[in-house]
């Protein structure tokens, strides 16, 4: 039987842990609100951008160097994770997805290089020797220019034909409880095909400069938007995952405390019974 004092110490420790996890849960939920707001305000931009892209790529302007499809020998993978841990299997899922992709590409005889965004991705692939570029400590406060830097980096290599394809691995924020790791092809940019459902009448536009030139200007921006989108999704997903993880941890702490309390009470009762037996035994002995 473990000593009374030991159990008491344990209860205290666990209840302190539960205080921390509870606080982390609340911090995460506050941060999530911010991240979700950011997602909301980004959405109109992304939607309108996609619409314009559709309009343009329907025309004859799809002959762009950033759209060139080549035989794929080298692949750039951009892996976006959070900077901090303690958010359940959120980062692990992304990393596993990336590992699977690397394996697939290598089996097909392609060389894979990595761009890691977020500390967790960097840590996970540090030993693989594949990291070409890593961005650390930016998931807390990233801006458009961070996304631009990443997109420009990979686009430059693509144009120099040093890489033939760029893929983006991140987690989509589906809901508070589900974030799904996904993979998207960033380069070459595939022309957006308009859905047949929409009335086939596309209004005539005056283009200034020519559609091809507009496309040339728009494509790099399109890459920025996609990278930024991935980062926004991950930052919201991270907080949501942390909220759930910390909520679970707090509940688990409660369960452990309950069990420990029972153990403590049992031990205390046993000690009292033991003492009583001693007293009664001593009294009996004196009587004799």
């Amino acid at each position: 039987m473990s000593g009374l004092k030991e159990v008491k110490n344990k209860i205290e420790g666990v209840s302190k842990t539960s205080q921390i996890t509870k606080a982390m849960n609340m911090v995460a939920s506050a941060k999530l609100r911010g991240a979700q707001m950011r997602m909301e305000s980004f959405r109109p931009y992304a939607e309108k951008f996609a619409k314009a892209m559709t309009k343009l790529s329907a025309g004859p302007s799809s002959d762009q160097p950033l759209m060139a499809v080549r035989e794929v020998k080298t692949v750039d993978l951009i892996v976006v994770t959070s900077d901090r841990g303690l958010c359940g299997s959120f980062n692990t899922n992304i990393v596993n997805k990336a590992k699977k992709l690397i394996e697939q590409h290598e089996q097909a005889g392609r060389t894979v290089t990595l761009i890691t965004v977020g500390n967790k991705a960097t840590q996970a692939f540090k030993r693989s020797g594949k990291i070409r570029q890593s961005y650390k400590d930016i998931m807390g406060s990233f801006q458009m220019f961070n996304a631009r830097e990443i997109a420009e980096d990979t686009a430059t290599l693509f144009l120099e034909q040093k890489i033939d394809r760029t893929e983006l691995v991140y987690a989509k924020f589906k809901s508070l409880s589900t974030q799904i790791p996904v993979q998207e092809t960033l380069l070459p940019v595939s022309p957006v095909v308009e859905e047949a459902g929409e009335n086939g009448v596309t209004a005539e536009y005056i283009y200034e400069p020519s559609p091809a030139e507009i496309m040339e200007n728009l494509l790099p921006l399109h890459l920025n938007v996609q990278v930024l989108h991935a980062m926004i999704e991950v930052s919201a997903g991270e907080q949501a995952a942390r909220m759930t993880a910390m909520d679970n941890a707090t509940t688990a702490c409660g369960d452990i405390i309950k069990d420990l309390k029972q153990l403590y009470n049992k031990a205390r009762q046993a000690a009292i019974t033991g003492d009583l037996m001693d007293i009664v035994g001593g009294a009996e002995a004196l009587k004799g």
Binding site: A52, K55, L56, A203, E204, Y205, I206, Y207, E208, P209, E213, I214, N217, L218
Partner: peptide, 19 residues
């Protein structure tokens, strides 16, 4: 400020796209 020069737009302008 368009890339090919400044432009002004009034009400009921024709469909137009510019960088």
């Amino acid at each position: 400020p368009g890339t090919s020069g400044e432009f002004g737009v009034l009400a009921h302008h024709a469909n137009f796209l510019s960088t």
